[in-house]
């Protein structure tokens, strides 16, 4: 755990707000992951094949290779579940926040909301450059800089020794 972070002294409301945000994002990731896990025969294939934008050939390439698709499916299912769990209960939260940002960046890049790509045809709202994936990435970035799991999470017990050394 970053020493500098631990020096931050939060008010109770600040801890509440940060924890609340962390749990919401955790909830979202965990549920998304579990839905995929429990959907029989779930695969990212259709999603990847339909991707748009400059990186579409890369994502389509993944979908067309059985081995790469298998890896992508596992990363999606388990990645989402683990990131969700981690954020939810505040366990090893920093590396998983980074992992969460990585996953979100893939979702963002496979359907980037840039003008003229038609990405909006596939979603419920209207987005230009900024969409919910990007905002969730930014929120995770904030949570990395303002961690709460060492106070309101399991990390409190794991990194206790470090804390007492301070």
């Amino acid at each position: 755990m970053n020493k500098q972070n631990l020096k931050v002294i939060y008010s109770s409301w600040q801890i509440f707000a940060l924890t609340f945000l962390r749990v919401l994002i955790g909830w979202h990731f965990l549920y998304e992951g579990l839905v995929k896990f429990y959907t029989p025969g779930w695969t990212a294939k259709g999603y990847l094949l339909g991707s748009v934008g400059p990186l579409a050939p890369v994502f389509r390439g993944i979908a067309q290779s059985a081995s790469m698709l298998h890896v992508a499916d596992i990363f999606n299912e388990w990645g989402l579940v683990l990131v969700g769990l981690s954020l939810f209960i505040g366990l090893l939260s920093k590396p998983f926040k980074l992992f969460g940002i990585t996953l979100l960046s893939f979702y963002y890049l496979s359907y980037p909301p840039f003008s003229g790509l038609g990405a909006n045809a596939h979603v419920e709202g209207n987005y230009w450059i900024v969409n919910k994936n990007l905002i969730e990435m930014a929120a995770l970035f904030v949570l990395i800089l303002f961690p709460s799991s060492h106070i309101s999470g399991i990390d409190r017990f794991i990194f206790k020794n470090n804390k007492s050394k301070m």
Partner: peptide
Amino acid sequence: KGLATVPFFGYF
């Protein structure tokens, strides 16, 4: 404090 979010997790 460390287990503050666990009840929500339980609900989930």
